[in-house]
Design a protein around this nucleic acid. Structure first.
Length: 616
RNA sequence: GGUCCCAUAGCUCAAUGGAUAGAGCACCUGCCUUCUAAGCAGGCGGUUACAGGUUCGACCCCUGUUGGGAUCACCA
C-alpha cells in the first residue's frame, strides 16, 4: 500500500476511535507538505472539527498524537492552524531510497490488464507535416509512453487520410505540370514534392477563379445572389466552394479523377500509389527525426466504406432514424446537440460513419478496452457525437473512449495561414532547432574536443530536447503560442536545463566507476540536509505523478515534474559538496541520491520522448 | 444565435477545494583558485477578466456578465 492511502486509513481509524464516527477515507486530504513547513505529509483537519467538537488546533494535536503512537512510519508531528504536518522518520526514507535504487523500473505501475490504443498524427497525404502535427505527434507519443508506464498495454496507430479530393489535386497537378519530377531526380523530399504540386494546383485554381469572375455568367450570379451588406469580393470569397464544385474546369477534372480512382481505374490508382509512396517515405523520415513510431497504420482508402452495417444495426436498435429521402440520422437533442447525419441519401458514408466502422474494426482486431484519439480541439463536436453514438449502440469499449483534445499552435504573429505562407514546416523546424542549438552550444565551448559524430548527436538531442519540452510542458487543452526563439532557449524552464542536471550526475557516476568507490555506507547517513530531503521527497512523488499523468492523459504533468526535480538537484549540487563531503557516509549518500535522481530524470524525460546526453 | 473551450505577474506557463497564488523569460544585484556557471542566490513584478453564490476554506465548484477561440456541411 502506498503511504498516502496508509495515512488516510490511519486517520480514518483515529477519527473513529477518538470521536466515535467514521470519516470517508477517500475524502481525507493527505498531501505532500509544502516546502516552507516542517513535515512530509499534511492532513487537513478542518473536516473533522464537526466530529471532535474541538478547535482545529486541538483536533490536529489529538490526531497527531494518535498517529505518532499507532503508525510505525510516523515519527513526529506539528500542527499549524488546521494543518497537521506528519514526519515520516529516517527509517522510512532510507527504505524508500533503498527500494528505489534496487528497482530499475521505479515509477512504473503494476500491470493494469487494460489495453489502450493511442491514435495520433493522422496526416493527409497531400502536404508535408507542419507545426500543428508536431504538437499532435509529441503529445501522442508521450501519452502512449506514459500509459505504458502506468501498466497498460499500448497499441500506437495512425490513420492516414490517403484518398479524396485533396490528393487528387496533387495528382492532377503533377500529371499536367510535373514534367516527370520525382523525389529521386529532383532531390526534393517526397512529401514536400507532392505538397508543392498541391500548392501549384491551388494557384492555378485561383487564377481560373479570378478569370471566371470577369465573365458574364459570374457577373449575373453576383447580381442575383449577393447579399445587400456584402462587397463583391466577400461574395466571391464565400462562393468559392460552390464555384469549384459547379463551374470550375479544374474542379471538374479533379472530381473526374476521384471518380476514376473510386472505380479502380488502373492508371489513376497507379499514379495515386506512386505519389503516396513518395509521401510515406517523407513522413517516415520526419517521424524518425522526432523519434516516434507506430504499431499499425490504417489507410482511409481501406476504411472509408466501413460503418454501413453499423448504420443498419443502429436503425434496427432505434438509435438512428431514416428520413423520406433515405438519409439516416441520429437525434442528439436530448444531450443538447443537434440531429446528425450518419448516412447520405445516396447510401454513401460520411466521415462519422467511417469512424464508427473503424472503431469497431479495431476493437475486433486488438480488443483494446480504451482508445485515445489525439486530435485538435476543432473536432470536439465530432468526438462528442462519435462517442455518444458508440455508447448508444452499446459497444463494449464505449466507456473507455477519450479524445485527447489539444489547442491550436499559434505563432507570436497569430494563426498559421497557408494563404500567407506562415505555416511552419515540421522538417524545417527540426533542422532549425538543431542548427540553433549547435550555434549556441558552440559558444559555450567545451564540446569542441568531441568527435564530430558525437557532436552531431548531441546537438540533435539538445535541439529536439528544447523543442519537445517547450511543446509538452503546456497543458494540452490550452492553445499555445509557439515562439521559435524561446523554444530553443537553453536556460531556465527548458529541456536543456534538465539535460544539464543529468549530465552533471553522469559525470559523478563516471567518477565513481573510475575510482571504484564503495557506496554501501550510505545507509549510515540519516541526518538529512533540507536540500537532500527535498530531493528525496520529489523522487518519492514520481510514481504518483506517473499515475496521475496517465489518468488525466496529460504529459505536461511529467514535464513539470522533471523541471522541479532538476531544479531541486541543481540547488543540491550548488549548496552541498558531493565528492568532497565531510564523511565517507555523507559522500556515499549524496552519490546514491544523485544516482537515483539521474535514473528518474532519464526515465521521466524518456516518457516525453526526450533523450539525455551523457556530456554537454 | 445554439453548444463547447479559454482568460493567473510586462511575456510564456504552474498551482488533486487547503497554509503567504508559484516558476521561467525580460529588467536589476550578487556568486566560478574547490565535483561542468547550459548553474545558484536575491530584487522587481498579482483586485487570479468582472459581479454574485456554495463552503470552515474558492484561481479551482455554481449562476450571470465581458473579452477571445472553436464548432454547428448529404466536407474530411
Amino acid at each position: 500500500m502506498n503511504i498516502v492511502s496508509l495515512l488516510q486509513n490511519a486517520v480514518s481509524q483515529a477519527v473513529e476511535q477518538l470521536y466515535g464516527e467514521k470519516a470517508d477515507t477517500a475524502k481525507i486530504s493527505v498531501s505532500p507538505t509544502p516546502g516552507d513547513f516542517t513535515g512530509d505529509y499534511t492532513v487537513v483537519v478542518f473536516p473533522f472539527v464537526k466530529l471532535s467538537k474541538k478547535s482545529p488546533e486541538l483536533t490536529g494535536t489529538e490526531l497527531g498524537e494518535f498517529l505518532t503512537r499507532e503508525v510505525a512510519e510516523v515519527s513526529d508531528f506539528n500542527v499549524i492552524k488546521g494543518f497537521l504536518n506528519l514526519e515520516l522518520g529516517a527509517a522510512y526514507w532510507q527504505k524508500f531510497l533503498d527500494d528505489a535504487l534496487a528497482n530499475p523500473d521505479f515509477g512504473r505501475q503494476p500491470r493494469s490488464g487494460h489495453k489502450v490504443m493511442v491514435e495520433y498524427s493522422s496526416p493527409n497525404t497531400n502536404k508535408p507535416l507542419h507545426l500543428g502535427h508536431v504538437r499532435n505527434i509529441l503529445l501522442g507519443w508521450s501519452c502512449s509512453r506514459i500509459l505504458e508506464a502506468a501498466g497498460h498495454d499500448v497499441v500506437r496507430v495512425q490513420v492516414i487520410n490517403d484518398r479524396g479530393v485533396a490528393i487528387c489535386k496533387s495528382m492532377y497537378s503533377w500529371l499536367h505540370f510535373g514534367e516527370g519530377k520525382t523525389p529521386d531526380n529532383s532531390g526534393v523530399k517526397g512529401d514536400h514534392l507532392v505538397g508543392d504540386f498541391y500548392v501549384l494546383f491551388e494557384q492555378k485554381s485561383k487564377e481560373e477563379y479570378a478569370a471566371w469572375q470577369q465573365t458574364a455568367d459570374a457577373q449575373a450570379i453576383l447580381e442575383s445572389r449577393k447579399k445587400p451588406n456584402q462587397t463583391d469580393k466577400e461574395f466571391f470569397k464565400d462562393f468559392k466552394n460552390q464555384w469549384f464544385n459547379t463551374y470550375s474546369r479544374l474542379g471538374a477534372e479533379v472530381r473526374d479523377m476521384l471518380r476514376k480512382w473510386e472505380a479502380g481505374d488502373p492508371e489513376t490508382v497507379a499514379l495515386w500509389q506512386q505519389m503516396n509512396s513518395w509521401v510515406y517515405a517523407g513522413f517516415d523520415q520526419t517521424y524518425d527525426a522526432l523519434g516516434v513510431s507506430f504499431d499499425k497504420l490504417y489507410f482511409e482508402s481501406n476504411t472509408y466504406l466501413l460503418g454501413k452495417e453499423i448504420v443498419d444495426e443502429g436503425l434496427a436498435k432505434g438509435v438512428f432514424y431514416r428520413k423520406d429521402d433515405g438519409s439516416v440520422w441520429v437525434d442528439l437533442t436530448d444531450i443538447g446537440q443537434d440531429h446528425k447525419l450518419v448516412l447520405r441519401s445516396d447510401g454513401t458514408s460520411v466521415y462519422i460513419t467511417q469512424d464508427l466502422g473503424t472503431a469497431r474494426m479495431r476493437y475486433q482486431e486488438f480488443g483494446c478496452d480504451r482508445v485515445v484519439y489525439v486530435v485538435a480541439d476543432e473536432q470536439n463536436y465530432h468526438f462528442t457525437v462519435l462517442f455518444e453514438v458508440l455508447k448508444r449502440l452499446g459497444e463494449p469499449y464505449a466507456d473507455g473512449l477519450f479524445h485527447l483534445s489539444y489547442g491550436l499552435v499559434e505563432l507570436p504573429a497569430g494563426r498559421m495561414k497557408t494563404s500567407e505562407g506562415t505555416v511552419v514546416d515540421a522538417d524545417e523546424l527540426i533542422d532549425e532547432v538543431i542548427t540553433l542549438s549547435r550555434q549556441q552550444a558552440s559558444e559555450r565551448g567545451d564540446v569542441s574536443n568531441f568527435p564530430a559524430e558525437e557532436q552531431d548527436k548531441l546537438y540533435a538531442q539538445i535541439g529536439l530536447g528544447a523543442l519537445k519540452f517547450f511543446m509538452i510542458k503546456v497543458n494540452p487543452k490550452k492553445k499555445m503560442t509557439f515562439n521559435p526563439e524561446e523554444s530553443v532557449d537553453l536556460q531556465g524552464q527548458t529541456g536543456p536545463y534538465i539535460q544539464y542536471s543529468y549530465v552533471r550526475i553522469n559525470g559523478l557516476m563516471q567518477r565513481i566507476e573510475k575510482e571504484q568507490i564503495d557506496l554501501s555506507s550510505w545507509v549510515e547517513y540519516a541526518d538529512y540536509q533540507p536540500q537532500e530531503k527535498e530531493l528525496l521527497k520529489i523522487l518519492h512523488e514520481y510514481p504518483a505523478v506517473v499515475a496521475q499523468a496517465a489518468a488525466d492523459y496529460d504529459p505536461s504533468h511529467i514535464a513539470n515534474f522533471c523541471y522541479s526535480l532538476a531544479k531541486s538537484y541543481h540547488r543540491f549540487w550548488h549548496d552541498l559538496s558531493i565528492f568532497n563531503a565531510d564523511t565517507p557516509q555523507t559522500r556515499a549518500f549524496r552519490l546514491q541520491l544523485s544516482r537515483m535522481t539521474g535514473q528518474v530524470l532519464k526515465t521521466a524525460m524518456g516518457l516525453l520522448g526526450i533523450e539525455m546526453p551523457n556530456r554537454m
